[in-house]
Design a protein around this nucleic acid. Structure first.
Lengths: 240, 240
DNA sequence: CTGATGTAGTGACGCTGGTCACAGCGGTCT
DNA sequence: AGACCGCTGTGACCAGCGTCACTACATCAG
């Protein structure tokens, strides 16, 4: 089997082991078979752009492996990272459904495997498979929910430190580390990228981290970050 | 016919004149008939709260008449208005589909007519009527799109004046006034509410308006605002 | 080894806008 | 009429943070 970019390609959705974990993929066999017929299994290297905001929607991208950075970008080049998509997520879904341009840009940050489906094929598929249509509604609700959280964090925060604290807590809760006394997390992003996630400048992120370390709230061990004082961090995330 | 709060109640969706204009309501007669069976036509006075963020989803609210303010609110009371919903919009949709708590608060700002559908009834209805399910996906895409715009405006703007200019242009484009030389728009909101829409303080909005007037970019005529210099306003919305 | 490139850390400076504190200015209720 | 209330308009003050400019590493290619 071909294996570009060092990926182990999952050939068929029907035999995919992760199927049941994934909100969109967990479809009845019949629907999944029609899906098989219209999907193109593709692979991308790190740094590939799946689509760009403003483009007319070509179709959906089901992320099977790897992570994808979703961002929006201002005319002056200032960028805001909305989220890092994980496997199981469907990208370009809302644009494909509504026919409006993609509202964000998707760029791989790992080698990725992706199932692409052309817009016309996908819409036909949805009309014929009501289970899938409902899954799409669920996915879109999920996305909407996410966007609302982003709005809340951007719009209701009083300071950059509050937003950074929120981000760190959110990250720690994703690894199931949140319950631990001193949660650890891998800092896979640069200060620049973190700044783009919370809508601030690179220098501010550096300064905030320096401050957190000085106040013994976090501690860096190489590229892992240990949260030493969860309570203080939570206080920062809710107050100002 | 009963007519509370000075409303002319639309009794049946089947005979509703606005049906075809409205993205969700324009369903095949068969689907609409099953919808009729599960909906409750209700009316609310101005200032009524349909649901509050954080509440478990009771169901959906199809707005037939009047406007509804959708907002999120921080623990300290700071509020952000996401949008003013117009007739035809379905409220509480994503929470009802996903089962997660309502992500925002909906409060009427006019006397409103609303069709309410209980969550279980609605989910059953969706399973049985795939046309409706697709409409839901479309509505959710629309909402997601909106949220993305909000994120862009909040996250990528450099200043409050930029956000205000964006808001004014957006409003003028809704009335079809945008094409005119000097678009007019009704300022139906207080400075406080405008501040909450763009995530700034009441005083800043007052100062910004004063500045716009001084620079002859806009002009107030009672509660209508005339945009005298569209070009300058657009420049403010894109630059800094 | 050396230069190039990307990331992180830090000081200085100044602007934007949040906050507080009041002052006018319609309404409306009694 | 007066009292009260919500909205608007302004001045003063200052914290937060964006920006610039530079240094310090680390990694990598040649």
């Amino acid at each position: 089997m071909l294996s570009p970019y060092g990926l182990d390609i999952i050939e068929s959705c029907l035999t995919c082991k992760m199927r049941s974990d994934r909100i969109f993929c967990d479809l009845p066999t019949a629907s999944l078979q029609s899906f098989e017929a219209i999907k193109y299994a593709t692979a991308y290297p790190k740094g590939a752009v799946l689509f760009v905001e403003g483009q007319a929607p070509r179709g959906i991208f089901v992320l099977c492996k790897g992570r994808v950075k979703l961002s929006i970008c201002a005319t002056d080049g200032k960028t805001l990272i909305l989220k890092i998509a994980e496997p199981g997520e469907v990208l370009g879904l809302s644009a494909t459904v509504s026919g409006k341009p993609y509202e964000l840009t998707a760029e791989t940050i790992d080698p990725c495997q992706v199932n692409f489906v052309k817009r016309e094929d996908f819409l036909r598929f949805l009309k014929d498979n009501s289970d899938a249509c409902f899954k799409v509604a669920e996915q879109l609700s999920e996305k909407y929910n996410n966007a609302c959280h982003e709005v809340r964090s951007l719009g209701l925060s009083h300071s950059a430190s509050e937003k950074l604290a929120k981000l760190l807590l959110e990250w720690s809760s994703k690894n199931g580390e949140a319950a631990k006394q001193e949660p650890r997390l891998k800092l896979a992003l640069t200060h620049e990228e973190i700044a783009q996630m919370i809508g601030t400048s690179r220098e501010t992120v550096t300064r905030l981290f320096a401050d957190l370390k000085k106040r013994q709230i976090v501690q860096a061990k190489g590229s892992t970050l240990i949260i030493r004082n969860k309570v203080a961090l939570k206080a920062m995330a809710t107050n100002n």
